[in-house]
């Protein structure tokens, strides 16, 4: 991955450690990366709550030929475009993030509560999550 070339095309992006941090246009960036470089796998999407700023999503791409990892990160409030048209594996990751962080992925039609039961209040991995569900009361 050639960072200088990348920087010329996309403004408002920066390199933090080994991670490219972008502010917007996720699908544009992924489209460009896939066309120019041989990345062929989206290993995972890592979500991490950053409090008031929103949730940071880190897309972990991998190229089998070059044996190279690439991290692209974007911080979102509550919704973002889905990348399922590039990688089918994103269906699984996005569903998990929807369940645990409450982020909506526009274009992914399979979003549902995955681990938590239907109708569960709140998203457990958010830092402001409080366990208020009545089904937990028997435990006290």
């Amino acid at each position: 991955m050639n960072w200088n070339e990348f920087e010329k095309i996309f403004d408002d992006c920066e390199l933090v450690g080994s991670k490219i941090v972008i502010k917007s246009n996720l699908s544009g960036v992924i489209d460009f990366v896939l066309k120019e470089y041989p990345y062929d796998m989206l290993k995972e999407i890592i979500a991490s709550d950053k409090g008031d700023e929103g949730v940071e999503l880190t897309y972990h791409l991998y190229s089998v030929d070059d044996e190279e990892d690439l991290f692209i990160s974007i911080t979102v409030k509550d919704e973002i475009e889905s990348v399922t048209n590039f990688f089918k594996s994103a269906e699984a990751d996005e569903c998990e993030i929807y369940d645990l962080f409450g982020i909506k992925f526009i274009g992914n039609e399979n979003l549902k509560r995955l681990y938590m039961p239907e109708g569960w209040q709140g998203h457990p991995l958010k830092k402001d999550y409080k366990e208020t569900d009545q089904r937990l009361e028997w435990n006290d």
């Binding site: 290993k43 995972e44 890592i46 991490s48 089918k88 594996s89 269906e91 699984a92």
Partner: peptide, 14 residues
């Protein structure tokens, strides 16, 4: 602050 696991089976189920 945050810990994330990637496991192989999760993607095989998908």
């Amino acid at each position: 602050y945050r810990l994330k696991w990637r496991t192989g089976s999760y993607y095989s189920v998908n």
